[in-house]
Simulated scan of single mutants.
Amino acid sequence: MTLHVASVKQSRPGVVCVTVVERGGEDFYLIARHWRVAVEDWLWEFPRGMGEQGENPQTTAIRELHEETGLWAQPDAVRQLHRLHADAGVLQDDVRVMEIRLNDVSSIPVVDSVNQGGDWELEDLQWLRSADITNMIRDGRLIDGPTIAAFSIREINKHMQ
């Protein structure tokens, strides 16, 4: 039997950015639609990307958030929640689920839709409540595995604090 394995960016750690802002005592998650060539469709996802040479996951998360949304996070606002493999059957990958807490909502466009993504493959940036994301998963509108996993991990961590 022949097995094929793909290495993602020489197995450098990637990140999924679970970006959260608290407004009125409730958490809002940053989510956007990304064009995905492999499935030829727009998918709702958390910002994410692969690490560059010499980057740690925290630095990768800050860079990816900025590249995809234009938002900046301070290093002390970023923490690793978990680690996962997107598809251990065929990918040599190492994905870190990074929570990014943005506290200064005065400088963050917390609105229903913001079309300011700096990434060509991103559109329709939104801040959504946990219940909204749960409904999108239930309704089949959010089908991206790493985003569903990262959201679940964040929700579990939130309830354990």
Rank of each mutant, 00 (worst) to 15 (best):
M1L: 12
H4M: 08
V5D: 00
S7P: 03
V15N: 05
V15Q: 04
V15Y: 12
V18T: 05
V18C: 06
T19Y: 07
T19E: 06
T19A: 03
G25A: 07
Y29S: 00
R36W: 11
W42T: 00
M50T: 04
P57F: 10
P57D: 06
T60P: 00
I62N: 03
L65A: 08
E67H: 11
G70E: 04
G70W: 05
L71V: 00
A73V: 03
Q74L: 13
Q74G: 02
P75T: 07
H82I: 06
R83C: 06
R83I: 10
R83H: 11
H85V: 06
D87L: 08
A88Y: 12
G89F: 02
D94R: 14
V95T: 12
V95Q: 06
V97P: 01
I100K: 01
N103A: 11
V105N: 00
S106F: 15
S106Q: 13
I108Y: 10
I108G: 04
P109N: 05
V110K: 02
V110A: 03
D112N: 06
S113W: 04
N115K: 10
D119Y: 15
L122S: 05
E123H: 11
S130F: 04
D132W: 05
D132M: 08
I133H: 01
T134M: 07
M136N: 01
R138Q: 14
D139E: 14
G140F: 05
G140K: 03
R141K: 10
I143G: 06
D144R: 04
T147A: 09
I148N: 01
A149T: 12
A149R: 13
I153P: 06
K158C: 05
